[in-house]
């Protein structure tokens, strides 16, 4: 399986995700610069975390209009899987590949810690290595992870099973709003990650790529990458 990792001015997790992909797939991904309107055909496109364009205007807003994202949108429409992590999630929502928006954390603080996530479904190429209801532990690091969508959009996401991950307590309890500590940012319905309708695009705020080696505190992120490899091989 060959992956492409996009690189914008201000990206900073592209190396982390490239290393995780190499570790798990055995192949070094192609690093693709934001100004490239075309790039080699790959089985997966990853939009990594960071602070693309310095978070100017809104997080992900400028990157979403870059030449490379026009090509990503074309390929996503053809069914090429796209994984947006953290700032990458913000970019793919701004680009319209996923509904809703990531707003400033409700408590206004940058949050950098491990969180627990409840896997909502195993029925996707991204989550097939997990069980529905399984709790995994991965880190988050963001100031704008407060997912919001209007009531109709939210209902459609819930009804169609497009919620991929929710913030939860270690025992899997998905509790109420901010202050209940399982939700690090005030995200509506504790949403940490969502799919598009065809479940070929996944955006999530947490960093599975930073939970793939025991020496860095956990390996619960491996399943996501292994699942992708299995689905795409």
């Amino acid at each position: 399986m060959k992956a492409a990792v996009l690189v914008f001015p201000g990206s900073n997790r592209e190396g982390d995700v490239a290393q995780a992909l190499e570790l798990i797939t055995g192949r070094r991904p192609a690093m693709v610069w934001h100004g490239d309107g075309d790039f080699e055909k790959t089985d997966l496109i990853v939009v990594p975390g960071g602070f693309s364009y310095g978070d100017y205007l809104r997080c992900g807003a400028m990157a979403a209009q870059s030449p490379v994202m026009a090509e990503v949108k074309r390929r996503a429409a053809q069914g090429v899987p796209v994984l947006g992590i953290c700032n990458g999630f913000q970019i793919v929502t701004e680009a319209g590949l996923l509904p809703g928006v990531l707003m400033r954390n409700a408590h206004l603080k940058f949050v950098c810690s491990d969180v627990h996530l409840k896997v909502e479904t195993s029925q996707s190429l991204f989550t097939n290595r997990y069980q529905a209801g399984q709790v995994i532990r991965v880190p988050v690091a963001h100031a704008e992870g407060n997912y919001f969508a209007d009531a109709d959009t939210l209902k459609a996401l819930e009804d169609r099973g497009q919620i991929a991950f929710r913030y939860c307590a270690p025992d899997g309890t998905v509790d109420g709003p901010l202050g209940k500590q399982a939700n690090p940012n005030g995200s509506i319905n504790n949403i940490a990650g969502i799919f598009n309708e065809t479940k070929t695009v996944l955006g999530l705020m947490p960093h599975p790529e930073n939970a793939v080696e025991p020496m860095f505190g956990g390996t619960d992120g491996i399943g996501l990458f292994e699942g992708i490899v299995e689905a795409l091989s």
């Binding site: 205007l57 809104r58 807003a61 209009q65 701004e94 509904p99 809703g100 928006v101 919001f148 969508a149």
Partner: peptide, 9 residues
């Protein structure tokens, strides 16, 4: 509509 505002919010 294209850039300056995000009309979701």
């Amino acid at each position: 509509r294209k850039l300056l505002a995000n009309t979701v919010i």
